[in-house]
Amino acid sequence: MTEVHHVRVAPERLERWLAGFAQRHPEPQVTVTPDAVELVSPDGARAWLESPWGRPSAEDPLAALVAEACRPRRVGALLVRRNSHAVGIFDGSKLVRHRVGRHYVQGRTKAGGWSQQRYARRRGNQADQAFDRAAQDASELLLPEVDTLDAVLLGGDAQAVRSVLADPALAALRSLHERQRRPLIPVADPNLQVLRDALPRFLAVTIGLNAEARGPAPESR
């Protein structure tokens, strides 16, 4: 099986990355699939560029892919870990609304027996309260705007995010995520700066490269 290496390229650098690929691996053949554009060069180099905003135009798929990647988006964000959460709305690159919360959730204990069970229940209750607060903030900030959002950015701890999204009130947010499904972004304990930094990671285009396609490509770093 061919090993595939992945890089992530900011939308504004994607056109330059494509020009560099064509220079290193001339005359690539372009194939469009529902979720990616594949480049195959006669020298054996292959690249798979995700198309998260829908299948690009078959007439000029690379130009369409770049245009869609660079188009300003309105994105909701929900970052959750046990000890904190951050909710926000980005209009293009600007964070127009946000709310950050911190919670106290006890760490794990090495105690055994009944004390450990009581401690675990208390810790579980604290986590539930933290997730309830995150769900409330998501409901208040994101739900009134959900019909205007292109996608929802999810980040933090996977189990924590699932717990928050399980709230029945957030059904519309779950539906948006299903339509524009993206991988969870791992982040440190959410705060305002972590929230701001998550957007470029979310918008970056993932590109898979086979061994022949790898090589010096400063623009992809």
Score class of each variant (00 low, 15 high):
residue 182 R to M: 02
residue 187 V to R: 15
residue 174 R to S: 08
residue 174 R to P: 02
residue 185 I to F: 09
residue 184 L to K: 12
residue 177 H to M: 03
residue 168 P to R: 08
residue 176 L to E: 01
residue 169 A to P: 09
residue 187 V to F: 15
residue 173 L to Q: 01
residue 187 V to P: 11
residue 173 L to D: 01
residue 161 V to G: 04
residue 158 A to K: 11
residue 171 A to W: 00
residue 171 A to C: 00
residue 170 L to S: 02
residue 186 P to V: 14
residue 154 L to E: 02
residue 178 E to V: 06
residue 184 L to Y: 09
residue 156 G to V: 15
residue 187 V to W: 15
residue 172 A to S: 13
residue 182 R to F: 03
residue 160 A to D: 12
residue 165 L to P: 02
residue 173 L to M: 04
residue 153 L to Q: 06
residue 163 S to G: 11
residue 154 L to C: 06
residue 159 Q to S: 08
residue 171 A to Q: 00
residue 171 A to M: 00
residue 157 D to I: 06
residue 174 R to H: 01
residue 183 P to N: 11
residue 182 R to I: 01
residue 183 P to Q: 13
residue 160 A to P: 14
residue 164 V to M: 09
residue 172 A to H: 13
residue 185 I to H: 12
residue 169 A to H: 12
residue 162 R to Q: 12
residue 173 L to Y: 06
residue 168 P to Q: 10
residue 185 I to Q: 12
residue 159 Q to L: 10
residue 155 G to T: 04
residue 177 H to A: 11
residue 162 R to V: 01
residue 177 H to L: 04
residue 185 I to S: 10
residue 161 V to M: 02
residue 168 P to H: 04
residue 177 H to W: 02
residue 186 P to I: 06
residue 180 Q to V: 11
residue 154 L to Q: 07
residue 166 A to G: 12
residue 176 L to A: 05
residue 185 I to C: 08
residue 184 L to R: 13
residue 164 V to A: 06
residue 184 L to Q: 12
residue 173 L to E: 00
residue 155 G to A: 06
residue 172 A to I: 08
residue 170 L to H: 03
residue 181 R to T: 02
residue 174 R to T: 01
residue 182 R to V: 00
residue 174 R to A: 04
residue 183 P to G: 10
residue 168 P to D: 03
residue 181 R to M: 10
residue 164 V to Y: 09
residue 178 E to A: 12
residue 162 R to D: 07
residue 161 V to L: 05
residue 155 G to K: 14
residue 158 A to S: 08
residue 157 D to P: 07
residue 164 V to F: 11
residue 160 A to G: 10
residue 156 G to A: 10
residue 163 S to R: 15
residue 165 L to G: 02
residue 183 P to E: 13
residue 179 R to V: 05
residue 153 L to F: 03
residue 176 L to F: 07
residue 167 D to L: 14
residue 159 Q to G: 10
residue 163 S to M: 10
residue 164 V to Q: 12
residue 186 P to G: 13
residue 159 Q to D: 14
residue 154 L to P: 09
residue 153 L to I: 07
residue 177 H to S: 10
residue 187 V to H: 10
residue 182 R to P: 00
residue 163 S to D: 08
residue 169 A to E: 13
residue 155 G to R: 06
residue 176 L to Q: 05
residue 176 L to R: 13
